[in-house]
């Protein structure tokens, strides 16, 4: 069975159909790319998948379980993590705390421990710190653990966002333009990291990207979105040579 199955997904904002009849099937372990011109509805698809918007039509199932109608927090708990196009970090908290916040539902202790800071608190907090540091190391962010997130340079903020999403232990990770605003070196480094986390954490990744090199380089399968509907799907080679796709990107 496929990990994520989306059928006939649609949403309209006051008559405008932002996404219409969208289908996607992602197998366990795949690295899938969602591309399309500006305003095609890519981020809207992400918002539908993560429960920020409620679809007007269609079904979304993760591992056979329905996701439609659940809120973002619940969808996260069922195993979908995400990043945002415009970075959304907890700016006034440290890098370490950003990741520890994401461990909230994985390592727990009672409210009483929150107030009293007894032995249970100390043990569990240490556990959280260790887990968070492990994830930060993967992104080479461990040396910035005590820095405020808003004081990180841009590229590292993007990485921290991925680290934070990973900390929720997702089965499916949605990355919204992870390479936006990065220079070619940073992009190359990011590609390596994405490959690495996929292997290390055995997760499935769906990413939105404009950078064709990044997409063609790491994605195994692509779907092109235009005006809210699916234009083409297939391997990168198939899709990027499709005349419809070329027209959509470059015009007639």
């Amino acid at each position: 069975m496929a990990l994520l199955e989306v059928k006939n997904l649609g949403i309209s904002f006051g008559g405008l159909k932002a996404v219409d009849g969208f289908n996607i099937t992602i197998e366990e372990g795949q690295l899938y790319g969602l591309i399309g011109p500006n305003g095609a509805g890519k981020t809207t698809v992400f918002n539908l998948l993560t429960g920020v918007y409620r679809p007007t039509l269609g079904t979304i199932t993760l591992d056979g379980k329905n996701l439609v109608g659940k809120g973002p927090a619940e969808i996260c708990k069922s195993g979908v993590g995400r990043t945002f196009q415009n970075i959304r970090l907890f700016g006034k908290m440290t890098v370490l705390d950003n990741v520890k916040t994401a461990l909230h539902n994985r390592v727990g202790y009672s409210e009483l421990s929150c107030f009293l800071h007894g032995p249970v608190y100390r043990k569990k907090e240490q556990e959280m710190t260790d887990q968070a540091m492990d994830i930060l190391k993967v992104f080479d962010l461990d040396r910035d653990a005590d820095t405020l997130a808003s004081n990180l340079p841009y590229g590292r903020q993007r990485k921290l966002e991925i680290a934070r999403a990973l900390a929720t232990n997702p089965r499916l990770l949605l990355l919204d333009e992870p390479a936006a605003g990065m220079n070619p070196n940073e992009t190359a480094e990011l590609m390596d990291t994405i490959r690495l986390i996929r292997e290390k954490y055995h997760i499935t990744i769906l990413l939105i990207e404009h950078d064709m090199k990044l997409v063609a380089g790491i994605c195994e399968y692509l779907t092109v979105l235009n005006f809210g509907t699916e234009l083409a799907s297939g391997t990168p080679a198939e899709v990027l040579n499709d005349p419809k796709v070329i027209t959509a990107y470059l015009g007639e």
Partner: peptide, 10 residues
């Protein structure tokens, strides 16, 4: 700091 991000991590 960011309610939408907070929801997205559960």
């Amino acid at each position: 700091d960011n309610d939408i991000a907070a929801e997205s991590i559960g």
